[in-house]
Nucleic acid binder design. Structure first.
Lengths: 155, 155
DNA sequence: CCAAACTAGTTCGTAGTACGAACTAGAGCA
DNA sequence: TGCTCTAGTTCGTACTACGAACTAGTTTGG
């Protein structure tokens, strides 16, 4: 149990990440969403966002985002709001139905993912979270999923 | 810094997982692979595996796996080996080219993901890994990615 | 021994994801 | 006014994933 190779460390992170993603996908599916659509909705929970910014958050090319938003719009979950200042640009906003679905999804997926660490004691969870937060901070993760850089400052 | 809500805990795990997946996708791309193809190749690094088992590991329906293996086979990365015992079944094995690519990818992605925790001290990395391992063990993660349940017993 | 039931994997149709190149339209500046 | 830049869309291609229906082998029960 002495030193750990980088490979071992990486393998652990990768496995956790695949586990979390799998859970995310399952919950999405239960809500009739693809993981990408679910992530989009969660990004919008804090209010309307421009296409360009959204593309940055999701690491998507603009053409990919157009398609994602198109499909969500067709389903009545989001709408494009033309920007009055710059008539080329538009903001993407949740519809009422989208807001409700996004909230339910966010709630459900949070519970589900939090449940993964169910058998850790509070101290372990706290330590885990704070170490991970240190990693995230170093890699400029302002927002990734399930409710942007939300109003929760753990530290 | 007292108690942490489940939501906060979940958000941290989700962000880490999206960060790791993003890195995984980038490295895949640099090797001319999709993340799915890369994961498939890594699963095969330990030797040929039957379609059914592979589907379980990757959480894929059999028809999805057929397609994934088809495309990898077309690219000359894997091949189907008919099972002599049960002539319905087949094992998927890496070709020489596939083995080389998989090894290079695995090496690269391991370095890249391990690098995410670069500014943690050895003790922190060790503690992080062992806590995550506890989570993984409780959720029966025998193998997820980047080199199955490999010959490395960290504890 | 042979038919019925079962299993491994494939095929097909559909929907969604993601990209890059080419394009439209509006904004901004000389 | 014209030139350039930028926001987003369109289009064509490749890939992902699913379920239903199917093929071909295996196993089981009469």
């Amino acid at each position: 149990m002495g030193d750990m190779t980088g490979q071992q460390f990486a393998a652990v992170l990768l496995r956790l990440s695949f586990l979390v993603q799998h859970g995310y996908g399952e919950v999405s599916r239960e809500h009739g969403l693809t993981p990408q659509q679910a992530q989009l909705l969660c990004m919008l929970l804090g209010g309307p966002v421009g296409m360009a910014e959204l593309g940055g958050w999701l690491h998507l090319e603009k053409s990919s985002l157009t398609g994602l938003v198109d499909r969500a719009e067709r389903r009545g979950l989001v709408m494009r709001v033309r920007d009055a200042r710059d008539r080329r640009a538009c903001q993407v906003a949740l519809t009422d139905r989208g807001t409700e679905l996004a909230s339910r999804f966010h709630d459900h997926v949070s519970r589900s993912v939090a449940g993964l660490g169910g058998d850790l004691c509070a101290a372990d969870r706290q330590r885990l979270a704070s170490t991970i937060n240190r990693i995230l901070a170093c890699h400029g993760v302002p927002v990734v999923a399930a409710g942007r850089a939300d109003d929760a400052e753990p530290g």
